[in-house]
């Protein structure tokens, strides 16, 4: 990361411990109890010593199986639950010291959240649901409904404003959930397993929709999922969690290439690598010796150029962002990736 980016949300040494007198327990162990300590006193370390920086404009995915603490972590980050210890900084301000009133103000104007089971209010129409966050702020009816119509159109539900949630399919309901969370134009957008409750085909469609929206909106996003494929597809960076601890934070490609431990490696084993790896990660050093088939960019993903490389008997030079040659590849490297042979790099 060459450019120093602004971290919108940042947490340091964050703990969430359940059990009897968790604060006292943490203090007694100098703020860093081990698994054995927790176990010995029947405490549950739902989030243990989390350190996360979320940069402006990135999609930050928190990935973990059920019970890994990802939901607790995101609820600490949004302060839906109070962390036991640690520091939470949103846009330079310490969130944990805010009063309820200040917190309400921050949430109303700057945060949005999409829920796993949609959390639509059953007694309100699509339009009223989408306008709900604005209604809570006391915005006039005309203004809030105009804004709600905009976001409903944005998520492709124009024409269904007067439907009730029960009259919509699961995918459509989540579109309403997304529209509602966008109505306040949040700076920070939490999505808590937004597509987990949907059928696989619809899930795929919603992921595409999400990518399209993010292409237009460029929000800062914290996205929770238990689906590694989904994480790989959407993330700029992924935090893998297990037993309340963050095992690794890295880009999808780094995760695949350098898993921190066997646990992460287990996830990455069946990932279609061609979709994750860039050419830069599989190059052989130096320019092509002999005839050159052409040039390709180091940041291209393997699956985007696989056909082209395979069809040519000759090798390609690989250029970095500045146009300098950083190495070369041929059919062999591409096929290694496609059939999952151990990559030399």
């Amino acid at each position: 990361m060459t450019i120093k980016r602004h971290a919108l949300l940042e947490c340091n040494d964050l703990w969430k411990v359940y059990g009897h007198n968790p604060e006292g327990f943490l203090k007694a162990h100098n703020g860093a109890p081990t698994s054995d300590d927790l176990h010995a006193q029947n405490m549950v370390g739902a989030v243990r010593n989390a350190n996360v920086k979320i940069y402006e404009g990135e999609i930050f995915v928190i990935m973990g199986l059920s019970g890994s603490g990802k939901s607790t972590l995101v609820r600490c980050l949004s302060r839906l639950i109070q962390p036991t210890a640690g520091e939470l900084i949103f846009d330079g301000q310490d969130i944990l010291s805010k009063s309820d009133k200040q917190l309400i103000e921050i949430r109303r104007k700057r945060m949005g959240m999409v829920f796993q089971h949609f959390a639509l209010l059953p007694h309100l129409t699509v339009l009223q649901n989408a306008a709900f966050p604005l209604e809570v702020q006391g915005m006039s009816r005309d203004a809030r409904e105009a804004r709600a119509r905009e976001v409903i159109e944005l998520v492709g539900l124009k024409g269904r404003e007067d439907y009730y949630p029960a009259q919509l399919s699961g995918g459509q309901q989540q579109r309403v959930g997304i529209a509602r969370s966008l109505a306040v134009e949040p700076d920070l957008w939490f999505l808590d397993e937004p597509f987990s409750a949907l059928d696989p085909l619809i899930r795929r469609e919603m992921q595409d929709e999400f990518i399209r929206l993010q292409g237009m909106l460029k929000k800062t996003i914290v996205f929770i999922t238990h689906d590694f494929d989904e994480a790989i597809r959407l993330a700029d960076r992924i935090a893998v969690m297990r037993d309340g601890e963050i095992v690794q934070i890295a880009s999808p490609e780094e995760l695949v290439l350098h898993p921190a431990d066997d646990y992460v490696a287990e996830f990455t084993r069946y990932v279609p690598r061609a979709k994750v790896l860039t050419l830069g990660s599989i190059i052989r050093p130096g320019p092509v010796e002999g005839e050159v088939a052409g040039t390709l960019n180091a940041s291209d993903r393997v699956d985007m150029v696989a056909d082209q490389v395979e069809r040519s008997a000759k090798d390609f030079n690989i250029l970095d962002d500045d146009g300098a040659i950083v190495g070369h590849i041929g059919r062999r490297e591409i096929i290694d990736v496609l059939i999952g042979r151990e990559v030399a790099a």
Partner: peptide, 11 residues
């Protein structure tokens, strides 16, 4: 989730 929604939108 509905209770959380309420808090997230700043009720």
């Amino acid at each position: 989730e509905l209770a959380e929604l309420g808090r997230m939108v700043g009720c």
